[in-house]
Amino acid sequence: MSKRPKNLDLNQLATRIVDEAIGEIEPEQEIDEKKKAAMESGRLGGIKGGKARADKLTPEERSDIAKKAAKARWKE
C-alpha cells in the first residue's frame, strides 16, 4: 500500500483511493531505503544546523541578522 499525500481533504482522499483501485491513476511508488536514509540524514542536519550556527555567532552578529530579518519582514 502506498503512502497517501497528507494535504488532501477527506473527499479528495476518497477520490484518489477509488481512482487507484480502478486503475485510473498509478499509486505513488515507495521510496527505496537508500533514498530514505539520505532524506532522514539531511533532515537531521537541518535540525542541528540552525542551533550550531547560532552557537558560533557573536551577540553582535546575531543582532545584525535579527535586524535584517525584521527589516525584510516589515518592509512595504
Rank of each mutant, 00 (worst) to 15 (best):
T58P: 02
D55P: 00
G45F: 06
D64I: 11
T58E: 07
K3L: 12
A37Q: 10
A37T: 09
K34Q: 14
A54C: 01
E24W: 06
Q29K: 12
W74E: 07
K71H: 08
Q29F: 03
A52T: 14
E28M: 10
K51V: 12
A66Q: 09
K3R: 14
L8N: 04
G45W: 02
P59Q: 07
S63R: 12
L44R: 13
G45A: 06
S41P: 01
D19Q: 14
D32P: 12
R62V: 05
K35D: 12
R4E: 15
K56P: 00
A37F: 02
K56R: 12
R4L: 15
E30F: 06
I31F: 00
L8Q: 08
A38P: 03
K3E: 12
A14E: 15
E28W: 05
K51M: 10
K48H: 07
G46V: 04
L44D: 14
L57G: 03
K48W: 01
N7A: 01
R16Y: 02
N11G: 11
E40W: 03
A54Y: 08
I31T: 12
W74L: 08
T58D: 07
V18T: 13
N11D: 15
D9W: 00
G23L: 03
A38S: 07
R53L: 12
S63P: 00
E33W: 01
P27V: 04
L8C: 03
R73I: 07
L13V: 04
Q12H: 03
N7P: 00
D64M: 13
P27L: 04
S63L: 13
P5I: 01
E40P: 00
E28Q: 09
E60D: 12
K6M: 08
M39A: 11
R62Y: 02
L13N: 08
R62I: 09
A37H: 01
L57N: 06
E28I: 04
E76P: 14
N7M: 01
A54Q: 10
A21G: 06
G42K: 04
D9N: 13
E26H: 05
L8S: 03
Q12I: 04
E61Q: 15
A21S: 11
S63G: 08
A69Q: 13
L57S: 02
M39H: 06
L10S: 14
D9M: 02
K75P: 00
R4K: 14
G23N: 03
I22M: 09
R43C: 05
K48L: 12
K71Q: 13
E26G: 03
A21F: 05
I65A: 08
T58M: 04
L13T: 11
L57A: 09
M1D: 13
W74D: 13
D32V: 06
A38Q: 13
G42E: 06
R62L: 15
I25M: 05
R4D: 15
Q29I: 05
R43M: 12
L10T: 14
